[in-house]
Design a binder for these strands. Structure first.
Lengths: 186, 186
DNA sequence: ACCATACGTAAGTATTGACTTACAAAAAGT
DNA sequence: ACTTTTTGTAAGTCAATACTTACGTATGGT
């Protein structure tokens, strides 16, 4: 057999192109070229564009690798780890996430493609909840806390990319977490 | 002359469709139908799809009126007004804003379409800056402050719409502003 | 040696989308 | 009345896109 193209290689290229061009903008022709395979083989292996994207996104659930994240009892350390990972992910894939969030309702075939990223939000909610139960954090809807923690980071990266001429100073995540906690401790 | 279709009516329909389907998803045929005019007339009046969208968004900027917003010296009142207006806008048009933010880098023709909304962010930055100069707020990049203030609101509305099965409690904006200020005063 | 496998190239099809052209009609100003 | 203005309908062009068909080829297992 020739070449033997690995799924990993394909999925990686797919994600890269999705980030660059979005779902509609990433044509199957370009997807094939990015994956260094023929368009025909692409359809043979993955059936359709939507299936390919779903498989790529599922496989790439590692985008936001929260496997290392958990409850340790040290809230500053936990939040710093979460924000660091999220910050990296937002830098690299924030546009993709935003695109998918807004394109999902318009592409029924994509339902389920964001299952994994959204589950990670629930993981974070779980950690928040434990700190609330412990009395470290004050009680409030966990999703509000998650939004307060991650919203500014996502917003900042999106705006930075939309206004590339303005050069925003980078976030100091350690200070960010510290200030986040002020006023939020029980 | 027949009918005499007003720009207002057209722009309103355009915005509505953009929210529903996004830029790529909103076809000129559908745009024409939504505006209750023929596709031909649409091209005659506005030249192209991108121009139509740009004009509609520019015109729409007025709906997100921050004209009442300014520096009063009462930081809690100012921020409460800003967040209230922003919250309303995000509820109604958050998806649109997010879509445009993520689609803009891929559609060079749209450059300038978000000029107006982005200028409002700069208005807010100006107010923040004055409170920093007064010593009410501690010094840090103004865009970081804006992101911290508005990011969570935008995030919350986006996620609410992406996960409609989960019912998130509404934000108490007054408490939100109060907590925002804790840890941020100079 | 041979055959199934996993790919490639060339050439389609069918659909759709942005945009145009040609011609007709309704209304308003004069 | 007539001309201008602003719309409409019908029909198209042209390019791009998702996806297919037919056929050929290199490779590895047996």
């Amino acid at each position: 057999m020739p070449k033997q193209i690995s799924d990993d290689q394909v999925f990686q290229a797919v994600i890269r192109l999705l980030i660059e061009r979005g779902y509609d903008g990433a044509t199957t022709k370009e997807l094939a070229r990015a994956a260094e395979m023929s368009e025909v083989s692409l359809f043979r292996k993955y059936g359709s564009k939507s299936q390919l994207v779903i498989e790529a996104l599922s496989h790439h659930g590692e985008i936001l690798t929260l496997s290392k994240v958990g409850f340790t009892g040290d809230i500053e350390a936990d939040l710093l780890l979460i924000t660091s990972l999220y910050h990296d992910a937002a830098e690299r894939h924030g546009e993709l996430f935003a695109t998918m969030l807004s394109e999902m309702p318009r592409h029924a075939e994509l339902k389920g493609a964001l299952q994994r990223p959204l589950m990670m939000i629930q993981t974070i909610e779980g950690i928040i909840e434990r700190y609330q139960e412990l009395g470290t954090l004050r009680e409030e809807p966990t999703m509000h806390v998650v939004a307060a923690l991650l919203g500014p980071i996502m917003n900042l990266t999106l705006i930075s990319k939309a206004m590339p001429e303005k050069h925003f100073p980078p976030l100091d995540l350690k200070a960010y977490v510290t200030h986040f906690l002020e006023g939020r401790r029980a």
